[in-house]
């Protein structure tokens, strides 16, 4: 899937960068400053999303964008303007996403992008807190009777070409000293068809993608996702290098959603809780009833209230778009709060 890092694409991006930087590096640098001012002047946030990925971003029949990543964009818009509709969604492909961000076409990229070293350092982006911890998994028909990926010796595997999934797969099989036969495919849609037609025994991609794919099958119960997760894919929103104020704003908006879940602040009760200071000073500071953290970000006192009121806290967003009540049915797993054994951990608001 496009969310995986892709070495070729990274190299291509770098070439484009070098060529372009030589000509317009200075100008581009100047553009990065004061994104918040630009956004306020424009009256809306330009947010890069995928052209369509189940659960993460998709337009509904009326053209309204919905999804897990979309909710992050809306929360940022709500934090700034108090109105989650003041956001312009720019569909980007795996090829165009980084250019769109680097050139200033979008202010923020929430496009299930894996946080990697080269993207952070070499492509000059700044990754925000991870909003979804993903990893590469395997799906097989139940009829095969396999319960562990280590029993997959000699299996044919449907794999998307040119992604890190390909490299992860090779590493995994070599480390376990077993063999496989790859069936290269281009897109997730093609993979679903090939897998169902029996062209391969196993389909491998990100676990969230596997769950979304399995949900579309006629008989999802006939297929199992194996317990092994063979790679780390921390998916996170990202912004450009060079405007730390804007980075702080997006970072702490994401943290506010995570913290809100930890403290039990939901879209239902946030207005009520923000009406007057409560007994928990951390919640008071988050909701602006005590101190003025919003002013430090260049926003109003109720920035976090608006962000949370838009689509709810992190847990609510998760449940509404990809959680167990949706057809995709992802369990929280690593994405649970740290108090529940997950990795979602917001620094203190003080």
């Amino acid at each position: 899937m496009e969310r995986q890092s892709n070495q070729e694409e990274v190299n291509m991006k770098r070439t484009v960068f070098l060529g372009a930087l030589a000509l317009s590096g200075l100008v581009a640098g100047a553009a990065a400053a004061a994104t918040l001012d630009d956004v306020k002047a424009r009256g809306k946030v330009n947010c890069g999303v995928t052209t369509g990925l189940v659960g993460f971003a998709a337009p509904d029949a009326n053209g309204k964008w919905e999804g897990f990543d979309v909710a992050i964009c809306r929360a940022v818009a709500a934090a700034i303007f108090g109105d989650q509709e003041k956001v312009e969604f720019v569909p980007t492909t795996g090829q165009t996403r980084f250019t769109a961000l680097a050139s200033g076409e979008v202010d923020l990229l929430a496009r299930n992008t894996t946080n990697t070293f080269s993207r952070d350092v070499d492509l000059k982006f700044e990754f925000m807190p991870t909003n979804y911890y993903d990893g590469q998994g395997f799906m097989i028909p139940k009829a095969l009777g396999v319960t562990s990926a280590k029993d997959l010796d000699g299996a044919t595997v449907c794999i998307q070409t040119g992604t890190t999934t390909e490299l992860n797969l090779a590493d995994f099989f070599r480390a376990n000293n077993i063999s496989y036969e790859p069936v290269p495919i281009e897109t997730n849609a093609e993979a679903q068809q090939q897998y169902l037609a029996g062209a391969c025994d196993v389909y491998t991609t990100d676990a969230s993608g596997l769950a979304a794919t399995r949900a579309t099958f006629e008989n999802p119960g006939d297929h199992v996702i194996l317990p092994e997760i063979i790679s780390k894919e921390p998916l996170a929103p990202l912004v450009r290098h060079g405007d730390n104020d804007w980075g702080d704003l997006v970072r702490w908006t994401v943290y506010a959603l995570i913290a809100a879940e930890e403290y039990g602040v939901t879209s239902e009760n946030v207005k009520e809780m923000a009406a007057s200071a409560g007994s928990n000073p951390e919640i008071n500071r988050l909701l602006g009833t005590e101190g003025d953290l919003g002013a430090m970000l260049g926003l109003g006192k109720d920035w976090a209230v608006n962000a949370i009121a838009a689509n709810g806290n992190y847990g609510e967003i998760f449940e509404a778009n990809i959680g167990e009540s949706t057809p995709i049915g992802l369990a929280r797993g690593l994405n649970a709060q740290w108090t529940d054994g997950g990795l979602m951990y917001s620094p203190p608001f003080r």
């Binding site: 995928t50 052209t51 369509g52 990925l53 189940v54 659960g55 993460f56 971003a57 998709a58 337009p59 509904d60 919905e66 720019v90 569909p91 980007t92 492909t93 090829q95 165009t96 769109a100 849609a189 679903q192 068809q193 979304a212 794919t213 949900a215 579309t216 099958f217 949706t326 057809p327 995709i328």
Partner: peptide
């Protein structure tokens, strides 16, 4: 133009498939 992120009919087929309602329709 689907490759540069414009939603022409082919691009829209992908976007439509990305909704949970219609994922799986080809």
């Amino acid at each position: 133009v689907v490759f540069i992120g414009l939603l022409d009919p082919i691009g829209l087929t992908n976007a439509i498939r990305a909704s949970t309602d219609w994922n799986g329709v080809y």
